[in-house]
């Protein structure tokens, strides 16, 4: 996994609250295999990006020239609620989005971003709203995200402190894979299983 340290990228405002993972990637694309050559980016926000005939909708933000290289999304509350589909994280990552800034996240999607080396940065809604207004007013403006110091710098140079649990911060900074982290504890796991299944043999 690619470590996450500092990211400076074009930021796109998504004002709406409750952007669910069905919106981020409609279910019909989840059956697609994801390979090194063919990522999930073609289906990101598909129903918002394309009309019924498959033509780009010009009013959708990621179709507008300044935002075609978006690397950061600044969203409203409860981003990524709904379905557990990790395809939502794949689609953003494959498009080039490595950080979502929002006041709150859907629980499973939050974990999915972390597992893919993406940073879900929690920032109070008033700061999110300020950032969204600024980047909307200056199309293509960049924001900088520094994970080590947990700061976001807006286009006007103002900085904001964002929240992330220290455990996730460490994983992202080092690009650590959870399976490895779990298997380090194998002796403890095996001892646990012995006790646990001795008590509840019907579960083994």
């Amino acid at each position: 996994m690619q470590p996450f340290t500092i990211l400076t990228a074009v930021a796109a405002p998504f004002d709406m609250a409750n952007i669910d993972t069905d919106k981020i990637i409609p279910a019909r694309f989840l059956r697609k295999l994801r390979t090194a050559e063919k990522g999930y980016d073609p289906w990101l926000f598909y129903n918002l990006r394309f009309d019924a005939d498959g033509n780009e909708r010009t009013d959708f933000i990621l179709n507008q020239t300044p935002w075609r290289n978006t690397g950061v999304i600044v969203a409203g509350p409860n981003f990524g609620c709904g379905s557990s589909r990790e395809g939502a994280a794949y689609a953003m990552l494959d498009w080039g989005i490595r950080c979502v800034i929002a006041p709150s996240f859907g629980d499973i999607h939050y974990a999915n971003e972390i597992q893919n080396g993406m940073l879900p940065a929690i920032l109070p809604e008033e700061h999110c709203a300020t950032l969204r207004a600024q980047i909307a007013a200056t199309p293509g403006a960049s924001v900088s995200v520094d994970l080590e110091s947990q700061t976001i710098t807006g286009p006007d140079g103002a900085t904001y402190q964002f929240f992330i649990e220290s455990i996730y911060k460490e994983r992202l900074l080092l690009g650590l894979d959870d399976v490895g982290l779990v298997l380090q504890e194998l002796p403890a796991i095996e001892a646990f299983e012995q006790r646990h299944f001795a008590k509840m043999p019907w579960l083994a």
């Binding site: 990790e86 499973i108 959870d178 779990v182 298997l183």
Partner: peptide, 20 residues
Amino acid sequence: FGVGATNLKQVLATQCLWQK
């Protein structure tokens, strides 16, 4: 509780999850 694909892989491989 529901998990995404990577956490599911972890459960398959280890039968454990790190959780807050």
